[in-house]
Design a protein around this nucleic acid. Structure first.
Lengths: 289, 289
DNA sequence: TAACTTCATGTAATATTATTTCAAAAAAAT
DNA sequence: ATTTTTTTGAAATAATATTACATGAAGTTA
């Protein structure tokens, strides 16, 4: 399907600083005249953007597409779609139907924003770290504890050793003895949770690979961790439902990470998941007899 | 607007009877799988539609396009404009960027479907039951346990007595002595989890108000409960990411329920949430000194 | 039904377009 | 200042789209 849900333009904007000089030329041209770009050939775009056809193709790869033709398709979808969702405030005495629409809109916008600035390479790197890790630890407090739990459930299903302890002391003890290559994932939407920061430092000291999972933007937590996963930052001041949308975004990133992980060795993954399912059914049958 | 940004699919339908036999083959193929067609080469489409590459090109001309590449662009625009999202299968060796878009699309579609068949009155009824309940119990297994936890966290924040025990025996004991008007929420996306059904029956027997929270469709669980909350049923067979999308839908319904609940007595709710926040901050400060 | 005409069709040749390779240039690192 | 790495575009190659054309089917006329 390509970039079906649009957002190619915002993705280009996001990766722009990471591109090479001549790729940036192409990027700027596309951002300026996507409607023209849509119908151009590689060579045409190369000359219009004062670069080369090779750079145009490289640009397409850099923004995560398979090739040039996909760029046209993606642009077309993006332009046709326009922007429809946005953040809405929830008012007093709201009609429930309106409420539902607003919450939906907020969640979708938050997800789209998260996708817009998702660092695909980072996802892949983290997925590989997890793949090699003998043990995985995930920790978060409050709503982030649910995310940690979700991580645990998902990777257990894949046959991994994952722990989402709530008890800091138990977690500390486990990490102190974790084998090399083990990973600690510290989850805090605000990036300001003291406990998570403490544990992150401890994990680092103990030689674990560390992953921070926070709302967008630099923070001490993201600075000191080896890898960073970000979710979009809802305009908190405006929307009281921030906690709600942010949770969806966090779960979404976990979903993505999970599938990225699974596709490292897809057949093995499918095997393991199938075995897990069978086990669940078996348990059911055993209790019935 | 330029070429192709119209309703290319309906144009194809319109001219279909006027096309030659082999052009019709192409047309039917495109109508059936526009999302696939979007990324094909001429030769691929020729073989898939059991025609020839020449016929494919002739077809493009016949529907008023300049050539084959324009068909892709037009289809992309059409699909993006129309049903923006849909359910997509995740394939092996998927490019991560494409993966992200597919997951996003699946989640959004699942949310939209859930909203589509959400019974607003039912939400309000359940919200009122919760409002009057002296104690609330939520129970689910696996991914549904996360939902139960989420419910607990949300209503604790509103000053309610909520329990999301994992231990069936503890839960049973608590419910046996629960005051009148207490509510039990049984969560099972499949509606087939034995434990949830058992507890639902027990809750009923103990005189609690019961709420089932399942995937759409009748089930024993939903039949015996006083109120039913449904989430959309993803086409499981097609999408391996079902568990993923369904979780989002479930959390979404909880969000809606939460805001519906809060708006029953909005000022009181805001007070309580504010107090909860202050408490969290205070704890932080206390540990810093 | 045979002979002719028209139109539809797929194959193969050709033209166009996308992609890769590679050597040179530029930028970083040492 | 020298080496290494990265970036770059020209040119070669691969892939893809388009066209030309021969063949055969369907229709028409005698």
């Amino acid at each position: 399907m390509g970039v079906g849900v649009g957002q190619i333009l915002s993705r280009i904007e996001n990766v722009l600083p990471k591109l090479t000089k001549s790729e940036q030329k192409v990027a700027r041209f596309v951002l300026e005249a996507p409607d023209e770009a849509m119908f151009m050939s590689v060579q045409e775009m190369a000359s219009r953007s004062l670069s080369s056809s090779a750079s145009v193709v490289r640009f397409c790869r850099s923004i995560g597409l398979k090739g040039f033709p996909e760029l046209k398709v993606a642009l077309s979808a993006d332009l046709a779609q326009g922007q429809k969702t946005g953040y809405f405030d929830l008012n007093k005495n709201e009609n429930t139907t309106v409420l539902v629409d607003k919450i939906l809109s907020n969640v979708i916008q938050s997800l789209k924003d998260t996708v817009g600035q998702l660092d695909v390479e980072m996802i892949e790197k983290v997925a590989h770290s997890l793949y090699k890790a003998p043990v995985i630890f995930a920790y978060g407090i409050g709503a982030s504890a649910l995310v940690a739990e979700d991580i645990a459930q998902k990777w257990l299903r894949m046959g991994k050793n994952v722990y989402a302890f709530h008890d800091i002391h138990v977690l500390t003890m486990s990490m102190a003895n974790a084998p090399k290559g083990s990973v600690f994932i510290g989850i805090s939407y605000s990036a300001a949770t003291k406990e998570v920061l403490q544990l992150m430092k401890f994990a680092q000291k103990s030689g674990l690979t560390t992953v921070s999972f926070t709302g967008f933007g630099r923070s001490e937590l993201s600075d000191i961790s080896d890898f960073n996963l970000f979710t979009s930052l809802a305009p908190e001041a405006k929307v009281r439902s921030a906690a709600t949308s942010s949770k969806h975004s966090q779960f979404f990133v976990v979903d993505v990470l999970y599938y990225a992980y699974a596709s490292i060795n897809i057949n093995d993954s499918i095997d393991k998941i199938t075995r897990t399912r069978k086990a669940t059914n078996e348990l059911k049958n055993l209790s019935e007899t």
